[in-house]
Amino acid sequence: MKITAALSGHGGEAPRLVQLDQEAPRAGEMRIRLVATGICHTDLHEHPGRHSPQPIVLGHEGAGVVEELGEGVSGFAVGDHVVLSGSSCGKCPSCLAGRPTYCDLAMPLCFGGKRLDGSTALCGDEGAIHSHFFGQSSFASHAIVPQRTAVKMPKDLPLEMLGPLGCGVVTGAGGVIEALKVGFGDSIAVLGTGAVGLSAVMAAKLVGARRIVAVDLSDERLELARAFGATDTLRGDEPDLAARLRAITGRGMDFTFNTTNAVAIHRLALEVLAMNGTAGFVAAPLGGFDPGMFGMLAGGKQLRGVLGGDANPQTFLPLLADYWQQGRLPFDRMITFYPFAEIDRAFADAHAGTVIKPVLLMENAA
């Protein structure tokens, strides 16, 4: 069938809208009519072609309605509302342990731009177009997704709000709850208050952390962090930042959660830890980074990489949706909506940092 999609791989600052042919879902797949999809920094980074082949349809925070089932799909019906998350094999030790973000095949499934057999679901005037980005390629009116990528949601929830649950929100909230296991009375410094960092702040409040410190260069975002539960805010360019962070508790932080790729902030995240503290990070430092192994040894400190919040989307995303309904995870306050046709404006605003979580509305996209 013909679909409208935003294609990367022809230069420019943003994907451009094109008409593509999309094949029917194969065994174990479904066709999803997208209602909305968030834009994540991974999409911004992949648009120029960092890891994935091109031309490709990106997008990996989709929410929509099941339109067609492939052979063998169970547990879903046409008309179901779903949020889409990352792709995984379902068979490796990580998947079987409920940690699909660490699937043995995560890289080819999420960044390979095709199925494992080498096929793609999309075709254009120039031939095959890469698809299945994070099992989705949701910058489109419709997506062909593996069953494991979809998480069923109650039909009374507004789908246009739910796409960011699949990546940005689950990475921040899951990072605090599932990966770091921040507990009641703990202290945490969240470094960077974009969508992931602010989701971490909300989750830290949810679990009862005693001191939640947000660090950023934007006063507006720090103000929002306070509204979401930060007990303290500090600008990232303040003098003696490490000393000020340690002084908040008198001994340093039990946890830090770093959402930036700045080498200086990676160093800071370790430096401000209390004894036996853990520094979680979701982005690798851009440049040389010496974590100071003796200091980690002497202080019993840990440096912990976090992908997808360590969470199992099938069980954790419905939980986050419940928290949102209860008013305890107000991630909707981070969202700015754009018509799909204005994806170039959404990309520009995301690059400029003038919005926190841009979400594309796909109405009349097909």
Rank of each mutant, 00 (worst) to 15 (best):
D310S: 14
R328K: 04
G309W: 13
D310T: 13
N261M: 12
G287N: 05
R246V: 10
G305V: 10
L273V: 08
R235A: 07
D254M: 01
G292L: 04
R244T: 06
Q302P: 00
G280M: 02
G250P: 02
N276R: 06
G292E: 10
R251C: 15
A311F: 04
D322F: 14
L319I: 11
T260P: 00
A283E: 12
Q326F: 14
D290G: 03
L270T: 02
R267G: 04
D240K: 07
N261D: 15
Q325V: 05
D322N: 15
A284N: 15
I265M: 10
N261I: 13
A279V: 08
L268Q: 02
T256R: 02
R244Q: 14
L234Y: 11
N258Q: 14
V282I: 07
M293I: 15
M296G: 05
G308K: 00
G295N: 09
H266Q: 11
F294V: 10
P239H: 08
L329P: 04
F255R: 00
G327C: 11
L320W: 11
E238D: 09
F281Q: 05
A242V: 00
L303I: 09
L245Y: 04
P313I: 13
L268E: 01
M275K: 02
G288K: 12
A279K: 03
N258H: 00
M253F: 03
A274T: 08
F255M: 05
F281E: 09
D254L: 08
A262Y: 10
L234V: 08
A283Y: 08
F294R: 10
F257H: 07
D254C: 04
F281V: 04
L245M: 01
K301F: 07
L307F: 15
Q302C: 10
A264T: 15
L317G: 12
R246N: 04
D240H: 15
P318A: 07
F255G: 03
P313D: 14
M253E: 07
T256L: 00
G305F: 13
L320I: 10
A284C: 14
T278D: 01
M253S: 03
V282L: 11
G280C: 05
W324A: 14
R267K: 14
I265V: 12
D240S: 11
M253K: 01
L329Q: 00
L273Q: 03
